[in-house]
Amino acid sequence: MAGGADNAPALEGRRRGLAGLIPGSRKRSRDLALIWLFLAPSLAIFAIYRIVPLIWNAVLSFQFWSPYKPAEFAGLYHYEEMLFYDDAFWQTLWNTLIFMASAPVGIVFALAVALLVDTNIRGRNVYRTIFFMSYPVMTVAVGIIWQWLFNENVGLINYVLIELGIIDRGIPFLESFDWALPSVILASIWQVIGFYMIILLTGLQSIPPSLYEAAAIDGANALQRFRRITLPLIRPSLFLCFVVGIINSFTAFDLIFVMTGGGPGHATDLLITYIYSIAFRLSKFDYAAAITVVNFLLFLALAFLANRLAGGEAGAVKTGG
């Protein structure tokens, strides 16, 4: 693992290798300058498109600002507004958390599918393809497809439910305050489940069969093998899926925008759609910046938490022999 004591010789070897090629400190510093020169465009782009907007957004959140007039210092005005007076902010925050909490549901389902298509069933490649097919579909197309499926009068889901005698009149899934968010979440899970499945399948296939054989010889049943071998060894894959799920809940703009526009009321608005709406529909960029800061901090906290849950080594790269 990076930074681990076991990697020290490898890193030292690399360092010495580089130094060995460059005799003399002057040449070394010239080469370092060259390295920085090559890195500079990427760093500049990163700074311009990531760091500067982030800082500027934070500054903006403490100002009264619009595209049409000079900025004025606002102190904590926008934060006070957001925390104490804006019900819609709390609702969209809550919706975002619900959206995020739905990620494990999708992951569990994807794991079940991955376990199924990892067995020696006939046509498993076809099943894998079918399950994966939803992922490359454009999100806008996914939104439109599910909009039709959920339609109160002509939607397939209502048709099936009525035919089965479960309901006697169509449910307005996307127009109902109770059903709209679960419906959008279902569409979101459907889209990403193929991706989760592939990631988890990769994890499953990297587990040496000898481990299962040894466990079976020791008398472990299927559930024990799953709990003691499969789950621990696919933890990095599960972590990746969870991170993707979190990111998805913070960026699921297009699906919401197409399916419900955030409505009814703010029933399906997430923080990201609310920020857009505040900034570009209401022209309140300063207030939107304050919500963005909260969004960013929340995202940061969750990424940190996820990293800790993954053992504090997420993103670490194994180097050396």
Binding site: A88, E175, S176, F177, G263, P264, G265, H266, S277, R281, L282, S283, K284
Partner: peptide, 16 residues
């Protein structure tokens, strides 16, 4: 726009 955004969701909730 802000007034619409404050008023309509409430009205909508009542109407539905």
């Amino acid at each position: 726009a802000a007034i619409k955004d404050a008023f309509y969701p409430e009205l909508q909730a009542a109407l539905l």
